[in-house]
Amino acid sequence: MQKISNTEIYFIENGINSNLRADGRSRNDYRHFSLETGEIIHASGSARLKISDTEVLVGVKAEIKEIKNAQSNNDKQQEDLKRFIFTVDCCQSASSEFTEQKRLDQYNIELAKQLERLYSHPSVVDVDKYLTIVPGKFYWNLCIDAMVLDSDGNLLDALSIAIRAALYNTVLPKIKVITSEYQEITFEVSEDPEDVISLKDAIENVPIFITLNQIGSQSSFIIDSTLQEELCINSKLCIGINQKSMICSIQKSSGMEGLEPQTIIQMIKSAKQIGVQIISTMDKALKLNP
């Protein structure tokens, strides 16, 4: 497991206070990342993201969900509304931190729940336009499985960006609905690989996470932390931002200290700027390479 001594923490903290991190970046600098889509043929959509040493692979599988009781009670209704099902799996080979099985399970669930919260609002994807087969009865459910292959810090950001790219890459086959005489509904799934609905335009409002780590004094926070920096954080705020600068999710985590309300406001402001910039750069790059 990665460990760090007090004097190293002191060195890193002071560097961040003077806006020069251990590897020469400033507080708001993101590392270079490479994105690749469409690697997995059997999935409806996939993407692979590499930020320095952090490597994440995401696959999207679509399945048809039937809503049986129209007049179900509240919670059932919520379950039925969920169009996205997230699973995160950090391979034990990803990092020596992940050797304890129980901790690993907990970590996987934590990440999956955070992503679920990010996509919890119905405005994320226009369900009626893209994911509806028969309104009220049959919908497309997207099972999003993310695998962490290697870890060098900043996992949640990498996961959210890779998921967004995977959704961009997702194609759903066109379905013809045939209602037989006895009110039975059958589907005719088009076999033509060209006859598909692409979700390229559906991801307009899909948000990504920006993780802000507060290190050292209250007012200094960094984005895109390396593994070494993550050992020095006082607290972490993960903020979900979409293209329209709307804030889709906030969660504070892994903090031994609290945050002052002023700092939170500044962090949200920073995250907004950075998030919008990343999404626009990403979209541009994705459009150039279909």
């Binding site: 600098d29 993101y30 990342f33 490479s34 994105l35 690749e36 750069t281 790059a285």
Partner: peptide, 9 residues
């Protein structure tokens, strides 16, 4: 904020 570099393979 400095340029964010994304490369597509």
């Amino acid at each position: 904020i400095s340029e964010i570099n994304i490369e597509i393979f």
